[in-house]
């Protein structure tokens, strides 16, 4: 009985983890907002400027 319950719990945990990975993977593929891309460009430009001044 306990073994049956353990097996069932394993299946439930597996189902949850597989779905979590799938959902997280979908979110990772969401388009990166322009604001973040722009921010990175600004930060890189600032770094280049600092390097040039040194």
């Amino acid at each position: 009985m306990t073994s049956d319950n353990d097996h069932k719990q394993q299946r439930i945990d597996h189902f949850i983890d597989q779905n979590l990975k799938k959902v997280f993977s979908e979110l990772e593929q969401d388009k990166m907002p322009d604001e973040i891309i722009d921010l990175l460009s600004v930060l890189r430009a600032q770094d280049e400027e600092l390097k040039a001044k040194k």
Partner: peptide
């Protein structure tokens, strides 16, 4: 790491 960071932020 940004795609994973965004997924974490959204979740």
């Amino acid at each position: 790491h940004l795609p994973a960071l965004r997924a974490f932020a959204l979740s």
